[in-house]
Design a protein around this nucleic acid. Structure first.
Lengths: 149, 149
DNA sequence: TATTGTTATACTCTATAACTATA
DNA sequence: TATAGTTATAGAGTATAACAATA
């Protein structure tokens, strides 16, 4: 079952794993404060990002992807809708479900906030050298995979 | 000022940066649920980890390191103390400050929980191949650096 | 007067349980 | 009977503001 996995009882791997967990928790706390739009929570931003990638999704799909419970996603989607960033439509095949779509306003907002985000991340990455940044860039897709494994 | 930093206006770097942020937020949400000890919050765990590395610290130092406000750290330290995992002593040179130290019980707990943590992380890393894990391991120290930069 | 830590209070986000509507 | 989504309620974690003690 673990054939593709390194032996985590090795000290090096275990240290890496601990560093990873600690760093992710602390970084997430910092990113929470650095909001591109003061009125948007991290999960709301994340939902918009998911919609930008996937096009459309049902609330249930979004809840699974963001690892929150359905009632939480109901609230998040309602907030996004009240801000005019998503629209909800009836599902064409199943009248229980709904389809969530990003509005043009959301796209515009995401585009405009790009320079802001870069400014903040630049201030963080400033303290890294080229080799460190390269390691981070190589790991980014792996972290993404890990996040929704 | 940005001389050691890659140009974040490049598409690749920007994509990496977006992937990083999204992945960190989602991973942190998952890790929040995977508590090695059901009675310990992620920040409490993180504080114990910091104390294990640094030996001792004042509440103010811990607040800065964990990126929480002083009143939050007061509460966290009080909870840890009530669980017998840290002890508070007066600061030898400044009577306003206090010194927080990990107890032996905390050390024992951290030691005992190691296998539990490994089991969870193994289940996540299971889906990665050796090359992916290697990238992650290389990036772990960089993420740590980023987290307290 | 500035700083460390605390107390009191409120807010944000998420969860669980119970409910409605549809499959 | 099972599933998608919602409503109502509660809990965890953190923040801000006001305060006490010490430098």
């Amino acid at each position: 079952m673990l054939k593709n996995m390194p032996d985590l009882t090795h000290g090096d791997d275990e240290a890496a794993v601990n560093a990873l967990r600690s760093a992710v928790m602390r970084l997430s706390r910092r990113l929470k404060h650095q909001r591109v739009d003061e009125s948007l929570s991290p999960t709301e931003m994340s939902v918009l990002g998911t919609l930008a990638r996937c096009g459309t999704a049902t609330p249930g799909e979004l809840a699974r992807k963001e690892h929150v419970q359905p009632p939480s996603m109901t609230r998040i989607v309602a907030l996004l809708e009240s801000k005019g960033l998503v629209k909800l439509e009836p599902h064409p095949e199943d009248r229980r479900q709904k389809v969530v779509t990003q509005t043009e306003r959301a796209e515009t907002m995401l585009e405009e906030s790009r320079s802001k985000r870069n400014a903040f991340l630049a201030s963080l990455v400033e303290g890294l050298d080229e080799a460190e940044w390269e390691k981070l860039r190589a790991a980014a897709p792996v972290l993404e995979k890990l996040a929704h494994l």
